[in-house]
Amino acid sequence: MKYAFETAGESRSFPNGDAFLNGAVGRDQADVVIYSGPRLAPDPRKTVILIELGEECLGDHIDDDNPAHANVLGFARYRNGDDPPSRLIELVRHPKASEAAIAAARDLFAAAGLEVSLCNDQVGRIINRLVVPKYNAALRFLDEGLATQADMDLTCKLGLGYPDGPIERVVRGGLAPYYQVSKGLFEAFGTSAFAPPRRARIAFKQATTGTAPAER
């Protein structure tokens, strides 16, 4: 399947140098058009049009009721903050998305060696919706003195077989970007589980004001 990649700056899913970018062709020859930044130009002749999403929803870009958007889907390759992209593509559909478009998107990403999980257009998609409350709880437990960071991370690795512990993971990906993810979910859902944790809030403040805590 031939795909075109329309970017306005670096894609978070396929950063500069990613082999996937090398396979792109011109828009006219492509069956699939991937948008990473530029404004969508609907084209019902294409098999599927994919819009790369950040934390926003697919509905922020399209009109579900417009038949010209039936072949438009959203996607994001999951990344833990600043970590390199994972193998997971969260493929986002809307209620009137065509099955042919979904099948084509699955084939495209599978051919690139990626795993695809299809989800509906909800805030946080699958991963962030599930991990943010857990990471927030772990950061709160740390503040409350339940255990040390090392013991909490070790518990998850030994007891649950996770490749890394929740706190080391959030810290590695960056507490400041994590703050924004958590804040976005908190605004959408309004439940305390998503409220940005103290450590992330401080890290974000430090990153945006450029000051260390002692200087404030």
Partner: peptide, 25 residues
């Protein structure tokens, strides 16, 4: 609750967690 809210099917949720986070299950 994500299954109940129609976020994705159980299989899609599990696949996402395994591929995205490296969990065994």
């Amino acid at each position: 609750r994500a299954v109940e809210a129609g976020v994705a099917t159980p299989a899609d949720i599990d696949r996402a967690i395994k591929a995205g986070l490296g969990y065994k299950m």
